[in-house]
Design a protein around this nucleic acid. Structure first.
Lengths: 249, 249
DNA sequence: CCAAAAGTGTTCTACCTACACCCATGG
DNA sequence: CCATGGGTGTAGGTAGAACACTTTTGG
């Protein structure tokens, strides 16, 4: 038996997670530095034979971040034949990181299901690398390292999906701390959308959704007027997720 | 070798297509009547080992309908373990429709990728059943037969996706005949959305998108005022598909 | 007291909604 | 000629965009 018991996995099927956090007004993504290769990969894994694909994504997220009960959404299946072209398994075999059995497993064609998760940056205490990687770190979306295979494309697609969903779904819960200011929420939107928004219109629009509660407190210590602290009305937030915010038509 | 050479297919992976057409002001879906079972299935198939998943979907659509160059969109992967529960393969083996090799192939766990296609009803001349089905027919969405496995759920998800996409994507090309009237287009929207829309506002909104061209001609023969015939400005239509119609934010 | 950030209000416009009205056609 | 469906116009409301103004805070 290899270091990984490949028999328990569904062949040819993998899951990759785009795990996004928000820190210092920047979108961060959790990436794995592959062993003996100057490339980084999305946290991913295989699907057990008796495991739902959605459950596998949840498990992988938990294994890397320790987090549970996180908003995790499937967004696309990547199924091109040529997506596995890179000969990384050869290097792994050469270096003795994998044995022949695992090599053969890795060498097959894989299709991968992309999931994205929005997590609170500070709640991820010790990101854990997997067997194929030497470290697991937050990287800035604006300054990405060299990504493995089609992982750049997967990330791009996740980002597109996220942008579109911003139009009809609430966002921020599990991405921001439990209490946050309106400028912080706005900065999140601006970062995801890649453009600036009007402060005052943003405030009105967000309040109009009815998913925010203004707590009585303010964030003090900043160099200027202290902003109010808000929290999500989780009940209404979930309803917004389910029903959509801007129905249209 | 079986009737199907299963060796050439990627194990555990299938594609199912929700093929929608529009006829007599009703949405129709192309379904297969399974042999020796009072159940119907979505047109589907397996993915060849050297074939992109998207290409497989195109191939399956072509095999059933003869159509090419159709709007075909992946919308979800269905990956629960329990989705294959039904013991249909047992019946097929019993009746001698499949041999042991094919039986074993069918008996494995499958995850399936859902695609939906919008096609012009009248252009599908002779829908062709596959090896497992005895007929291939258009069924009315409002009066569905008993569906196999989770195909009802897959259809539902396709319909949800379609409804949402109506808010930011044009629709109608390849679903309506090349020339159509505004009431016909409206009927399509109403059918998909499951609600009535205001005639006059609909017209203004659609014209506002700039994807329609009013031809000089009218449809005569109807019992009342003859409506104008329109066609899509395919250039702008495609641009609308790519960029979205209502960007939002 | 000043600069900069945060909160609130106002105007203008565009679009959506809900209608009223006119025109064509076949029976 | 009339019932019905199709085409066009218009008034009111609502929401988004683009503003100005006030308030608070640390330095």
């Amino acid at each position: 038996m290899s270091v990984l018991n490949v028999d328990k996995f569904q062949p040819g099927l993998s899951v990759d997670c785009v795990i996004l956090g928000f820190h210092h007004n920047e979108l961060k993504i959790l990436l794995l530095k592959l062993k003996d290769l100057e490339r980084w990969a999305l946290p991913g894994g295989f699907v057990e034979k008796e495991e739902d694909v959605d459950k596998a994504a949840v498990r992988i997220l938990r294994e890397r971040t320790g987090l549970k009960n996180i908003f995790l959404q499937q967004f696309h299946l990547f199924g091109n034949v040529d997506r596995n072209e890179e000969a990384y398994a050869d290097i792994l075999l050469e270096k003795g990181i994998v044995d022949k059995e695992l090599y053969d497993w890795l060498d097959q064609r894989f299709v991968t299901v992309g999931y994205y998760a929005l997590v609170e940056y500070s709640r991820v205490e010790a990101p854990t690398p997997d067997y194929f990687s030497e470290s697991c770190e937050w990287c800035s979306l604006s300054n990405l390292p060299n990504l493995w295979l089609d992982h750049g494309r997967i990330l791009e697609k996740a980002h597109e999906t996220l942008k579109r969903q911003l139009n009809y779904q609430p966002i921020g819960l599990n991405l921001l701390p439990p209490r946050f200011t309106m400028p912080e929420l706005q900065a999140l939107y601006e970062t995801i959308l890649g453009k600036t928004l009007d402060r005052r219109n943003f405030q009105r629009k967000m309040m109009g959704y009815g998913i925010l509660i203004r707590t009585g407190e303010r964030r003090t210590g900043g160099a200027h007027k202290s902003p109010w602290l808000y929290e999500f009305d989780e009940e209404k937030y979930r309803q917004g997720l389910a029903d959509g915010l801007n129905a249209g038509w």
